[in-house]
Amino acid sequence: MMHLILLASFVTMNWHVLPLALVVSLVYSATRHEEAGDILQHSVRLFLMIMGFVLVVFAILLVASWRL
């Protein structure tokens, strides 16, 4: 039950990472390409990578705090 509460608080306070990841992906990709198609493709890949990394770190922290 405590872990559900932790998960809920993580989601509510850390949804802010979503727009940051989106903006970073778009701007970084746009500085690597000039064509809109290339920019979008690269930014989607980068966004998924960033969110994947965030989720992995969250999972590790969740497991590490399981017994605390």
């Binding site: 903006v23 701007v27 970084y28 690597r32």
Partner: peptide, 26 residues
């Protein structure tokens, strides 16, 4: 603070793009 810092850092990338064009992966 983090949001404004990231905005500033992203603009540094944009400055390079304006000066030198995109760093083509192609």
């Amino acid at each position: 603070t983090v949001y404004t810092m990231i905005a500033g850092l992203l603009n540094v990338l944009v400055v390079f793009d304006a000066y030198n064009g995109p760093a083509y992966l192609e």
